[in-house]
C-alpha cells in the first residue's frame, strides 16, 4: 500500500469548509439545546405533576431513540410538515437529542444543591422562582460543568451523523472526497485528527472556565 498524503493539502479547502460547517452546526445545536435542557431539567424537579410527567416523557423518549433514527425521523417525518431542509433538520435533531441529556444533567445538578440553600433563600423572602434563579441554578451550574462539557464534546462527535440526511459537514465532505480521490486511509485519518483537535480544544476552554469559576470558592 502506497500512501499519498498530498491529497490532504490539495483539498485543504474541502476540510476547512467541512470543519467550519461541523462547528457551526454543533454550536447552533448547543445554543438551542441549553435552554431546552434547562427548561426540561427544571420540569423534572417541578412540584407540578403534569409538568414533571411531560419532562420525563421527553427525556425518556429521546434517550431511548438512537440519534441516527431521530435524525431520519425529524428530516423525513417532520420534514413533511415543516420546511426544515437538511441543515436546520440536522441542527434541530442534534439539539433535541442533546437537550434530553442536558435536562438530566441539570436535574442532578439542582438536586445536588443542599436543601438548606433553598430554605435560606425562601426565608429571606425570595419566591421559589427567584431562589431558583439567583441561588440554586448558579450553584447547580458550577456542579454540572464537567458533565456538560462531556455532553458538548459528544455533540460535536455526534454531528458527524448529519451526513446521512445530506447536511454538509466535515464527514460528508470527507465522504465525497474519498469517492473522487479513492484516498480513504489518508482522508479518514486526517478527519479523525480534525475532530480530535476540535473536541480537545473545547475541553481545554471549558477546563479553563471551570478553574476560574471554582477558584473563588476554594
Amino acid at each position: 500500500m502506497i500512501y499519498d498524503w498530498s491529497v490532504i493539502p490539495r483539498n485543504m479547502d474541502v476540510f476547512i469548509d467541512g470543519a467550519i460547517k461541523t462547528l457551526e452546526i454543533s454550536l447552533l445545536a448547543i445554543l438551542i439545546a441549553i435552554p431546552i435542557g434547562v427548561i426540561f431539567g427544571l420540569g423534572r424537579v417541578s412540584k407540578n405533576k403534569i409538568i414533571r410527567l411531560i419532562a420525563s416523557i421527553y427525556v425518556e423518549v429521546i434517550r431511548g431513540v438512537p440519534l441516527l433514527v431521530l435524525l431520519m425521523w425529524i428530516y423525513f417525518v417532520l420534514g413533511q410538515y415543516f420546511k426544515l431542509g437538511s441543515y436546520w433538520g440536522a441542527i434541530n435533531a442534534l439539539a433535541i437529542f442533546a437537550g434530553a441529556f442536558i435536562a438530566e444533567i441539570v436535574r442532578t445538578g439542582i438536586q445536588a444543591v443542599p436543601k438548606g440553600q433553598m430554605e435560606a433563600a425562601r426565608s429571606l423572602g425570595m419566591s421559589h422562582t427567584k431562589a431558583m434563579t439567583h441561588i440554586i441554578l448558579p450553584q447547580a451550574f458550577r456542579r454540572v460543568l464537567p458533565p456538560l462539557a462531556s455532553q458538548f464534546i459528544m455533540l460535536i462527535k455526534d454531528s458527524s451523523l448529519v451526513s446521512v440526511i445530506a447536511a454538509t459537514d466535515l464527514t460528508l465532505n470527507a465522504k465525497n472526497l474519498v469517492a473522487t480521490s479513492f484516498r480513504s486511509i489518508e482522508v479518514w485519518t486526517f478527519v479523525a485528527l480534525i475532530y480530535f483537535i476540535m473536541t480537545f480544544s473545547l475541553s481545554l476552554i471549558i477546563r479553563y472556565f471551570e478553574k476560574r469559576l471554582l477558584k473563588s470558592e476554594a
Partner: peptide
C-alpha cells in the same frame, strides 16, 4: 408568604450561607 417572611429573620443551625 414571601412578603410575610420579610418580617421574619431566620438563622439556621448549619448557617446555610450561599457558598458562591
Amino acid at each position: 408568604i414571601n412578603k410575610a417572611r420579610l418580617n421574619i429573620g431566620f438563622v439556621f443551625q448549619s448557617f446555610n450561607l450561599f457558598p458562591f
